[in-house]
Write a protein that binds this DNA or RNA. Sequence first.
DNA 1: TTGAAAGCGCTAACAA
DNA 2: TTGTTAGCGCTTTCAA
Lengths: 341, 341
Amino acid sequence: MPDRIRPTLEAVAARAGVSRATASRVVNGGAGVRERLVERVRLAVDELGYVPNHAARTLVTRRNGAVAVIIAEPEIRIFSDPFFSLQLRGISRELTANDSQLVLLMVEGSGDYDRIARYLAGGHVDGALAFSLHTQDQLPAVTHKVGIPTVFGGRPVRTGAGAELAVPYVDCDNRGGARDAVRHLAGLGRQRIAHIAGPQDQTSGIDRLDGYRDVLADGDPTLIAQGAFTADSGARAMAELLDRHPDLDAVFAGNDLMAKGALRVLQERGRRIPEDVAVVGFDDMASVVETTTPLLTTVRQDIEEMGRLMVRLLISGLDRGEGPTPDSVIMETELVRRASA
Amino acid sequence: MPDRIRPTLEAVAARAGVSRATASRVVNGGAGVRERLVERVRLAVDELGYVPNHAARTLVTRRNGAVAVIIAEPEIRIFSDPFFSLQLRGISRELTANDSQLVLLMVEGSGDYDRIARYLAGGHVDGALAFSLHTQDQLPAVTHKVGIPTVFGGRPVRTGAGAELAVPYVDCDNRGGARDAVRHLAGLGRQRIAHIAGPQDQTSGIDRLDGYRDVLADGDPTLIAQGAFTADSGARAMAELLDRHPDLDAVFAGNDLMAKGALRVLQERGRRIPEDVAVVGFDDMASVVETTTPLLTTVRQDIEEMGRLMVRLLISGLDRGEGPTPDSVIMETELVRRASA
DNA sequence: TTGAAAGCGCTAACAA
DNA sequence: TTGTTAGCGCTTTCAA
């Protein structure tokens, strides 16, 4: 690779026989330039293999064409969560569609918040997308203080510093979806419906439990067991529930992974699904749902679309000038009936 | 947020009563500037909350302070692999230590290679880190063609386009590690040692199988079953092996996740571990190894360190000028004895 | 050791 | 519709 010097706009203009300004106009869409010249410039661009210099452009436009995705310490494991991969894919696709780059910021310790804040304050990115899953997280407070437009994935827990902040977020209707799931089970005539709850320091875990309680207002609290959104934790919770209530006839798990773990334990203990025990999950994650026997009935949320929405929300806010976008988006869920309930 | 205008170097210089050039020198380390002035400039920087404008700096230095991490389509699921999270963490930490940003590029379809190539050619990043796990992948060819310094994670499979390329990569000694595992099992006196192999279109899967064969040169090929690096696939493979060889007394699984699945099936079928069947995994992934009963004996590789090494390799190549860095790094592995073998 | 000045490549008034 | 020109904020010769 001889590593030729990269051609500048100047070179393109010269070759096309126009001024730098005209060449610039063409490169940026070509509005208000005579068709003939547009063609000549386009040709020159192709021949020279011209690629605009991003730094130069940013310097004058004050637009970076880049968005930060911030992942905070306790959540780094969410990389292992297929949920997150899907959302990230949605984000990536939508960003690409908007000619923006994805800058990944991983926050490790609490000291890192300073570094992140400096980076965000440094104007390297036009906005940020963040995942603030846990109660203790300072991220909403940090991004607000720095004053960079930010959209959160999942409703942030409103406690601690910045609890009063109205941060824009994208989430699905966790509570409503949970209600649908439990109502479906009840509609099947099930009498003892248990719940394997997700972590209670995340809104998704909290809201789904709330939805369960909405329907089973005066249910037996011992029909609720605590899980951690993993298959193993679902299995453990199921075993617990079975010990306490050998006669339970339905389970609503806080997510598909826990449902999968529950299914395994139920079958090990000789329960037929759905005859003896009906099971409903949450998420409709293909990689999980397609590998259970029987196929899992679950509450569907469009995770990838939620990722895309985060980007759209951010960019629409960016476009209409400063200031955060206080509107959030709550997406509908849908009960998908399969074989397990 | 009043969104004050960001102070420029000019402002810092004025406040410190020096020239812009001197202010610049201080901001960039302060070599060759009298101590008194250094102090004054530093003070001004603090008071004004000055943060250098990255675009302006890049424009003149031709250094981006950013590295792309490229993840190709078939591998997007590797987000679900704790292996990848760990490596990414190592990458992120080392990049941070080098004041560089991580730009995430996700390649979706084959059409995307064009977009990626354009981006890389556009000089937005100083170099790239890529994961080329599968045989068909064009990534090594693409990055080479574009001429951007690139380091791969895991030895790329050398077939198809660009098979002849000497691409620098960081990997562990998969083959040697596998040999250690199998020798350990043999040393325990095991006679019928099975192997659950990883995908044979990835070098890690291939090399570990080769290592197994190195030790068991004339072993029974039906003692080998095919897995896909997931727990479920490990369980399936184990069931297969048990059907074929009810008398097997040891299993070397291609990774910890498959070992975990195998463990479950072995126990369901009444085998005691390690008395009846000894099991060894590969990776020493904390999240897996700590959750098996009994605790898993496995081959350890320092995944996070491999991530860091990828960055160091890239940056050292960058520093000593153009041209790719043809040296690769193969890290040692270590057998970690626990309860399962 | 310090400062003056010349750009880096691009966009956006403003003029023509 | 097109071109001229003035910067964007920074680094880096080159002189002093």
